[in-house]
Design a protein around this nucleic acid. Structure first.
Lengths: 256, 256
DNA sequence: GGGGATCGTTCCACTCACCGGTACGCTCCT
DNA sequence: AGGAGCGTACCGGTGAGTGGAACGATCCCC
């Protein structure tokens, strides 16, 4: 059941422990022992023992209802070098961008065939975008994803376009040809757009953060609600932020 | 050597794996096998095998120089419920506070006898504060720490004050009596101050985020360089942000 | 250019930590 | 009262994990 992203080797303690950790998602942050058993498919006793150990090692917390990922794990995750260096370098630019636009700002990197959001600035009373820091989204239906894909190796582009393109909304572009068109247009324009393709009611512009070799390290986007928000108005601001961060990153000789 | 915070039971794979993960710090984000062996005190072969497994499970990445904490760990950490819920609720307030002051803004929670920073907004060209998201600081020498300690149970306050108070700068207050004085003053004033007690050249004001039962969930602070920056000027802004967040959190029936 | 130090990797036989079925006690339901 | 669902505890068998020893590859200094 419910194969975790990193479908681990269940023959080792470590594998089982990782499976338990991966059973938690952004939405289900609190799971009972029974729920963990169901999600991992592991024997109850094993989950019981392992979860207990994880609590002992401060990777899980006990709660009235069961277990949840602990603050220790948060600390550990914040030490992940690439994401954290990027985040620290990027914050001032994201900050400026938000202040200039007062719209939701994202920073994302590519992980496999998906976008992982490394930072999100959503001010008060914004149209709620479903993205979350640390969350994932498909590459083909988000502005950040398109940017990351457009500047990526041809291999990856081909790989993604030949695979299934998940439909998220009625506006999601699922025809490989049309996605390819958009990727080309993105390179041409230096930015990519998204119009209600990942979530209804939201539009988006994104620009790539390129290193010294013009490889895409990350992407920055501005998101707003259809109607008041016109992504074209923010092209220059996003591009400026992404380029600023890019040159800063390049100066640091790739993200160490 | 170098006992990790959660000095783990080294008799189990899991314990060893956790020890390996904890060997990485914010500063040493990239460690060779030999370095891991030295820091964990584990046999070389064991570290080799376990690190390999951790790479397989996407908790570590291989690099030219050795290993580092992976993006997968970042994602996992971002799912830690308390920190992430708090972070999402707090961001708009931190955002506003930064825009109002244009000084470095922190959000911190207490973990044991230390502060853990959950969020940091450091604008361009600020005096670099040594804090980092996910990093720790002692309670007695930071504004956030004083706030968290002042509103905490008497048990904790006694516990911390009777323990050794680490000196961080010439200005660090290490006399238990004087710290206690400041805690009382903090409750009186609704905010706590710090004047170069954790890092030279920096001053700070912090206010508590209280839940419905007046228990401190977290604290918010504004930090700036001595000279231009006068913490007293920002008392109202910090207090407003913290209270706003507090009522929001209280409405959600404690952080689930 | 050879010898020594350092580092990552492979091999292997022992053994103990892990395994998971079974059973128990508790709290809600019906 | 009975039954379902859950968390906890017990326990003997066994294979995953163990770590010492030995190997090859770099690098650097004499």
């Amino acid at each position: 059941m419910a194969t975790t992203p990193t479908d681990p080797d269940l023959g080792s303690v470590l594998g089982k422990a990782v499976a338990v950790l991966h059973a938690f998602t952004v939405d289900d942050h609190e799971l009972s022992l029974a729920a963990l058993v169901e999600r991992t498919g592991l024997p109850k006793t094993s989950v019981y023992r392992i979860a207990g150990d994880l609590v002992r090692y401060r990777l899980l917390d006990r709660t009235a209802l069961g277990y949840r990922l602990s603050g220790g794990l948060f600390e550990l995750g914040m030490r992940a070098s690439v994401e954290r260096s990027l985040l620290e370098l990027a914050m001032p630019y994201l900050q400026d961008l938000y202040e200039r636009t007062h719209e939701t700002v994202h920073l994302g990197v590519r992980e496999g065939r998906e976008v992982v959001y490394v930072a999100k600035i959503a001010g008060r009373g914004q149209a709620a975008s479903p993205s979350r820091t640390g969350g994932r989204m498909p590459l083909h239906c988000t502005a950040i994803g398109k940017v990351l894909l457009a500047w990526a190796d041809d291999d990856l582009r081909r790989d993604v376009l030949t695979g299934p393109l998940e439909r998220r909304t009625p506006h999601t572009i699922v025809a490989p040809g049309r996605v390819a068109q958009q990727l080309d247009a993105a390179i041409e324009a230096g930015v990519a757009f998204e119009r209600e393709e990942s979530a209804l009611g939201l539009q988006c512009v994104a620009a790539p953060v390129l290193d010294a070799d013009d490889r895409p390290i990350a992407a920055i986007s501005v998101t707003g609600p259809v109607g008041r928000f016109r992504p074209e108005q923010h092209v220059d601001a996003v591009r400026a932020a992404a380029q600023g961060l890019g040159t800063l990153v390049a100066r640091r000789r790739s993200l160490h």
